[in-house]
Design a protein around this nucleic acid. Structure first.
Lengths: 210, 210
DNA sequence: TAGATTGTTAATCGATTAACAATC
DNA sequence: TAGATTGTTAATCGATTAACAATC
């Protein structure tokens, strides 16, 4: 199968988010309508979808419910995914209570922390286990994706331990250097880095660049 | 000035993050050394930097402290930025206590919420003000960047009000449809969308695609 | 049939990579 | 001088856009 670019996958997710928002209100949608709110173009939308097949009806557009199903299938969202949150500080706690995860198919099935005060308790119905038991518990509960919300200095080690335990995908809020972690998929969300994208734009705008 | 791609800016931020990590340990660094941990190539590093000037010494490499200064200047990080957090729920609270912001040049100078219980109190030394006073307070305190941590349904309205109050950059944790908000710069961090990038990779890997 | 909109091919554009002269 | 590494140009690669026949 041809390689799909990361930006294409991102757009597919965006289309899906959009479609879910209008499901029920509208039966059909054109590539043009789908493109606009996601900041794309109709050609781009059709191209992105055509990487996976032909899902529209010429002259009419795409069936909203069918396209939702199709995109869910493409993105691997026909089923729910089992997630562990590592690090139950402020951010980790926020994640345990974040409805946006379960709404979109991700179940946080367990959390880990080093703090003995927290270990053994639960938060929002989710058990907090000791990091020492990570490997065993991850296997027992069939965790597939890890979310890292620890201090940066611990992140590297946690990723390795998750890998050893058979977890093959990680989303880290700690800025990790990605390196070659094949076959593990690692993605980093770095708030400050995103803000720097903004300050760059603001600064160059102010300097009169276009 | 030629247009700089978003991915190039992202890499520059990555280089900077890396350089700060090794500052003090090392005086000079080659494009090769800089490339590897950021998952880039030496040619890419040199190209990225050359978009802004010549900062290296042939045969030697780049001076670490000088390159840090240069990248900070390019990204607009010579000065600190004044940030407001809108929405002091779990995520917002976590942000108010997040050291990674001030460490990287962003000062949260005020927060906003609708909850009258919270309004008037402070968290981590940051005043929580009523959303109704947003426009005035944003001006008074010279807020330049807004971070949105409200429920999704409120996000659109908040962005408009921030724009009216003169804020020209927004980072949103609520999935906002970006549309044309010129001249405002808006960026969205969508946790579930990032996870979908992972599930896509896991799913297509499992299907035997390369 | 006339109008609309897809799916796909070809053209364009931009970003990445390779290569190498310049030079420390 | 020999070795290393930059800065930059040219070549390649891939992604986006344009265009249009197919068809609902």
């Amino acid at each position: 199968m041809k390689k799909i670019s990361e930006s294409a996958v991102r757009r597919l997710s965006l289309y899906l988010r959009l479609l879910r928002g209008i499901a029920g209100d509208q039966e059909l949608i054109s590539s043009q309508e789908l493109a606009e709110p996601s900041g794309s173009t109709s050609a781009q939308v059709r191209k992105d979808l055509s990487l996976f097949g032909s899902f529209g009806q010429r002259g009419k557009g795409y069936s909203v419910p069918e396209l939702i199903d199709t995109l869910e299938r493409i993105l691997g969202l026909e089923r729910r995914w089992r997630v562990a949150v590592v690090g139950v500080g402020k951010l980790g706690s926020a994640l345990l209570g974040y409805r946006g995860l379960s709404e979109r198919g991700f179940d946080v099935v367990v959390a880990f922390d080093v703090d003995t005060e927290k270990v053994g308790t639960e938060l929002n119905g989710i058990d907090i286990c000791s990091i020492d038991s990570l490997s065993r518990v991850v296997r027992e509960r069939g965790v597939e994706i890890g979310i890292i919300a620890t201090p940066p200095e611990e992140a590297e080690g946690i990723v390795s331990r998750l890998a050893d335990a058979g977890v093959s995908a990680v989303l880290s809020f700690a800025p990790i250097e990605l390196g070659n972690r094949d076959p593990m998929v690692v993605r980093t969300m770095d708030l400050a880095l995103e803000l720097e994208g903004l300050t760059f734009a603001l600064t160059s705008a102010r300097n009169g660049d276009s």
